[in-house]
């Protein structure tokens, strides 16, 4: 079906496309190892976050915590803010985003275009500064409501009820699912669904490894583990640095014609690792991974051209995932 009553009804149902050129070749007679990309950039605002944003708002409405005209406050560095801004606009809420100033210019323009208001926290202060800014804002506006994507079960449920079933329907022979680890909602929801339905499926996380300036932590006790995170859902977890993420993002567009953001490159890097292991072991594999968003919002970083060193430098201190 390609006709919908409204934009929100067009959420999800994204294409799953094979990557015949990036999939590793196997020796004659050996079982096939195939890579499949789920194109989440085909969602209403162009990222996988539309699913979580819609679910979180709808559930807050249904449980009576959100009323028309309310202001939603959400600390976010990008796609969740854009997705929430669209949902808020269509459902009649005001959205205020608190975000660090070192995110790409496109994200800021998009947020404003969708009608969100932005309060910046200085990049130099890292997470501590983001905390201070958000606290100050919340103290001044105690009536603003936060959906808290890191601990909101509706975030993971969106993927349990939509992303997971879509993958299983399109690829019943799936052996691996690879996605980015941020709020952990995509991996927890999709992972739980697939583990219930597919024997032996491997759920694999790819997390971005930023330069330390980005973290700005002063103490090892200041780490953050989202409440949604349940390590038992995962089988493996890879840390992917900027250089590998950029390399794979470029390969996606050069080899398969898929123009994606850098977090998708990081995810592909982990997907290729498990695909090559399967080839080595002589095992059949259908590895599905997430294209979290398109590359449009990151063009201004300049990291799509020039040498890998240039790209790494361009992304230094940026939140690219």
């Amino acid at each position: 079906m390609a006709r919908y009553e409204s934009l929100l009804d067009a959420l999800g149902g994204t294409p799953l496309v094979g990557l015949p050129r990036l999939s590793p070749s196997v020796p004659e007679g050996a079982p096939a190892v195939r890579l499949w990309a789920k194109l989440e950039d085909r969602n209403p605002t162009g990222s996988i976050k539309d699913r979580a944003a819609f679910y979180m708002v709808r559930e807050a409405e249904e449980s009576g915590h959100l009323h028309p005209g309310d202001t939603i406050l959400e600390p976010t560095s990008g796609n969740t803010g854009i997705a929430l801004a669209m949902v808020a606009k269509l459902r009649g809420y005001r959205l205020v985003c608190v975000m660090p100033e070192n995110v790409s210019a496109e994200r800021i323009q998009l947020l404003r275009m969708y009608g969100a208001e932005i309060l910046f926290s200085p990049a130099a202060g890292g997470s501590n500064q983001a905390v201070a800014t958000a606290k100050q804002v919340a103290a001044e506006h105690p009536d603003w409501k936060m959906l808290y994507q890191y601990g909101n079960p509706a975030n993971a449920r969106a993927h349990f009820e939509t992303t997971g079933p879509e993958l299983l329907q399109d690829l019943p022979t799936i052996t691996h699912f690879v996605a980015g680890l941020g709020t952990t909602g995509t991996l927890m929801g999709t992972g739980r669904f697939l583990k219930e339905k597919v024997d032996g499926i491997q759920i694999i996380a790819a997390e971005p490894r930023y330069g330390e300036l980005v973290y700005g932590l002063r103490n090892i006790d200041e780490g953050y583990v989202p409440e949604l995170y349940d390590a038992s859902v995962l089988d493996r977890r890879f840390s992917v640095g900027t250089r590998d993420a950029v390399l794979r993002t470029r390969q996606l567009v050069e080899v398969e014609g898929i123009f994606a953001g850098f977090s998708s490159g990081a995810i592909l890097h982990a997907a290729l690792a498990v695909a090559h292991e399967a080839v080595k072991a002589g095992r059949r594999a259908d590895v599905a991974f997430v294209i979290a968003d398109g590359g449009w919002k990151y063009l201004s970083t300049g990291a799509y051209g020039g040498t890998l060193n240039d790209a790494e430098e361009a992304l230094e201190g940026q939140l690219w995932a």
């Binding site: 958000a134 936060m146 953050y224």
Partner: peptide
């Protein structure tokens, strides 16, 4: 250090939850 992907937003959000605000 263990930090979520969107660490800055998360740090801020988690800190807000520590506030005794019923809203």
């Amino acid at each position: 250090p263990a930090v979520a992907g969107g660490a800055l937003g998360f740090a801020a959000a988690a800190a807000l939850l520590g506030r005794p605000s019923k809203h």
